[in-house]
């Protein structure tokens, strides 16, 4: 079974916003703002139990692709199908509130991902435990460091029995020991039939964790296939593999 299917998906954005209603009325209606093609004709599928990596340079469309899968950006063309409960960790602190404490945020975040209070109460200890935040869990989130927020977000997304976990550069902010814990969890994850889609600049961790990968460039897929091969092709195409 495919957890994620994209069929000829394209996404376009207007190049700039119309700042005010006044301006919109005053401006000649004939002129249409130029559009940016963020994704062009992307077709791919991710099977249950797979860890799938998305690589590419900055601005290539990796995050847009992840957001389309998450149902956040509607496609302008094509069709997107997902099967299973989603848990996106896109940018840090997905649906966190600075005024609430870490613990309250666990519940708030859970409700965003469609989980009941009772369900979250059962996961609460495990989440706090895995995040390693300890006594700070009852302090307001605005007092947390970026790394702490990332740890909390990752812990929530991977503890609530989601079937499709979307990770956007989350591992990059944690420290080495937490990263190791995360990688271990990701490996254990797909044995349960859950799927991980994972955007990263860190080619080594993609090679390590993912069975398949996609290389995105200019909004289009340059290559899809076995992670090893896609990464090799990507590295060969770039003169400075250590860049970015």
């Amino acid at each position: 079974m495919n957890r994620v299917e994209l069929q000829n998906v394209s996404v376009r954005y207007p190049a700039q916003r119309i700042p005010t209603l006044k301006e919109w009325v005053v401006r000649a209606r004939g002129k249409r703002p130029a559009a940016v093609n963020a994704l062009r004709d992307v077709t791919l599928s991710v099977a249950a139990g797979e860890a799938f990596g998305i690589i590419g340079r900055n601005g290539a469309g990796k995050s847009t692709l992840l957001r389309v899968i998450a149902g956040i950006i509607p496609p302008n063309r094509g069709e997107v199908v997902t099967r299973g409960a989603l848990a996106p960790v896109i940018e840090l602190g997905t649906g966190f509130d600075g005024e609430l404490s870490g613990r309250e945020n666990i519940f708030f975040n859970g409700s965003l991902l469609g989980r009941s209070r009772a369900f979250m109460r059962r996961c609460e200890e495990e989440i706090i435990d895995f995040s390693g935040i300890g006594a700070h869990i009852d302090s307001p989130l605005r007092t947390y460091s970026t790394g702490m927020v990332a740890r909390l977000a990752f812990s929530v997304a991977t503890t609530i029995d989601a079937e499709i976990v979307l990770l956007d550069e989350v591992l990059a902010v944690g420290d080495a020991s937490f990263r190791e814990k995360c990688e271990e969890r990701i490996r254990g994850f797909h044995s349960n039939g859950a799927t991980i889609v994972f955007v990263s600049h860190d080619l080594d961790s993609v090679r390590d964790l993912c069975s398949r990968a996609a290389w995105v460039e200019g909004g289009a897929l340059r290559a899809v296939g076995a992670a090893e091969e896609v990464i090799d092709a990507y590295e060969k195409a770039r003169p400075h593999p250590k860049g970015t």
Binding site: V9, G71, P74, N76, E79, V80, V81, T82, R83, E163
Partner: peptide, 10 residues
């Protein structure tokens, strides 16, 4: 889980 299937058509 068919209930959790989601489809977005452009």
């Amino acid at each position: 889980d068919l209930a959790s299937e989601r489809r977005y058509v452009a």
